[in-house]
Design a protein around this nucleic acid. Structure first.
Lengths: 329, 329
DNA sequence: CTGAAAGCGCTTACAG
DNA sequence: CTGAAAGCGCTTACAG
């Protein structure tokens, strides 16, 4: 089909190996030949066959992205999409390809990740860390594939990019306090997640520093029904609550709004702080203070760290924290 | 690193070619040898090197997915994410990999699609059709890469899976009429998109059949400001409008709600029909009639059609339309 | 049914 | 600086 290195070599009247060296930017080619070859490559728009290159270099030029959740279930909706998009464009900038890997579905353990790793189609991995499969992690590490986490993982210390969850939380709570709220409750996601705990720490810190009571904390899963039930319980237990801090955005927060409204609460009369901004909030008619994560930068940074590893220059630090941006509405 | 076919052959005391034939499920191997080889492959968990296989077979085992829009801009938010997820799992079921390809950003024409195609890393493509780049389509076709569209493309007739836009529209409008609405206006997306025109046709059809006036049609871009302006214009021009049909969901619809509310309209007093369901609507406190697209099936079907092409059995028909499901809230 | 050999299109020592 | 040759791990005629 396409042109091969042999043909380019013939056109340029040089050996295949010379063309190859030019292709790979190696030193030790006369300026004259290099230019001649480059010109021809340009003119005929030659692209080396990636399979052949991969076979001899033992590198595929493709990066895998492991999404933490399967299909329908995605807490924050846009979050992972945006991360993937950022990563995809950064990976492309490096001339590599991105392969999306979703968690294996029941009954199909063989496909996907394991096959991709075992067949060496993947040079490196970016992994959504909030929920990892130990068996797969073991495989990845035993095959010596470089990887970086998005979000810190509590069981496995490794390169990761995350936001400053605690600081973000603290800023939100400080804002709420500045606005005059005192009886602030917290509806929090599952405790297993590292980021949940960090956000909670931030909440407690500021509350206690301000001499306020930090005991109104409710944990719940991300399922809407659970979130709604929890919200209902909260206002029944502490009817004088004047503000609520929610540690996750997306439909989780929406479900809570809904339960409150259904419980007869006017959402304008209560303060809200939410970790994770969401475009949807633009369309709500009551004020919310949110922490916006620098999603694009996170994706870009994670990709950079991965390529640094691939190049043999791993960063000194494991954890890379990016600041969040507080949004007032 | 990993085991090679040579080692498997040695373990089984056969020739490499025999192992290869077993690997590829070819006929003409004695039961005894086949079983012996299979057993070993199992035991040592052998995975053929994909680059080597790709090089000799001239097939990579990877499918590309071209997203129609770049990064931040995505009309329906969840729509493309869900399609991609469905496709990803179906592709995995076939033992292949999925590569996500986002539209090239300004100034980086070289990476991504063109490189992927030219270097033959991609066996086939699934393409979000609502906005295609003619130059790239030309490249794809000249390289003879099989593809299938998600959504019909107006300029290029080819295999595609779509929903029945017109019928869905008709059902929504019929419902609105059944609910007693008569002065129904339509806020529609850009006319360039085929599906927009089909949805509009559905609207006009039913209105005219019912003897109602179908002239209250407003086109707008998907940008929120435009949508909001259009909504405002609509109620100023036709203040007696009692229902609005919106041809696209997501933040487009939300922006319209917002503009109406801002314009002093009580959203409970007006009927709404929207093409494209959205989980968000669960959280709104006024009734909406929507058309829910069978997103998962669309992804699955598109993938199936692509693999059928790859196998040399292209379907007879170009267009494959799936029915929508009307949701009443 | 079985296997030796050539070939896929690159890269990488190596010798000159 | 340059090029001939071997090798990467598969598959595919081909001969037996």
């Amino acid at each position: 089909m396409g042109l091969t290195i042999k043909e380019i070599a013939e056109m340029a009247q040089v050996a295949k190996s010379t063309v190859s060296k030019v292709l790979n930017g190696q030193k030790g080619i006369s300026e004259e030949k290099r230019n001649r070859i480059l010109k021809i490559i340009q003119e005929v728009n030659y692209q080396p066959n990636s399979a052949a290159r991969a076979l001899s270099k033992k590198q595929n030029g493709t990066i895998g992205f492991i999404l933490p959740h399967e299909a329908g279930y995605s807490l924050s909706g846009l979050y992972w999409t945006e991360i993937v998009t950022a990563v995809a464009s950064e990976v492309a900038r490096h001339g590599n390809n991105l392969m999306i890997i979703t968690p294996a579905e029941e009954g199909e353990p063989f496909h996907n990740l394991e096959a991709a790793i075992r067949s060496h189609v993947i040079d490196g991995l970016i992994i959504g860390a909030e929920q990892i499969d130990t068996k797969n992690m073991y495989l990845i590490m035993s095959e010596n594939i470089p990887f970086v986490f998005i979000g810190q993982n509590q069981t496995l210390q490794h390169f990761c990019v995350d936001v400053d969850n605690q600081e973000g939380s603290e800023k939100i709570i400080s804002q709420l306090i500045d606005h005059g709220y005192k009886k602030i409750a917290c509806i929090s996601g599952p405790q297993e997640y590292q980021y949940t705990r960090e956000r909670l720490d931030g909440f407690r810190n500021i509350m206690m520093n301000a001499g306020l009571e930090a005991g109104r904390v409710f944990h719940t899963s991300y399922h809407e029904e659970d979130a709604m039930k929890t919200a209902t319980t909260l206002i029944e237990t502490f009817p004088d609550t004047d503000a609520i801090y929610i540690t996750a955005g997306g439909t989780f927060a929406l479900a809570i709004f809904d339960a409150l409204r259904f419980g007869g609460i006017s959402l304008k009369d209560i303060g809200f702080g939410i970790f994770d901004d969401n475009k949807i909030f633009d369309f709500l008619d009551f004020p919310i203070i949110t922490a916006e994560q620098p999603i694009k930068q996170m994706g870009t940074l994670a990709t950079k760290i991965l390529f640094d590893q691939l190049a043999g220059n791993p960063p000194k630090e494991f954890i890379h924290r990016l600041p969040v941006n507080i949004v007032l509405r």
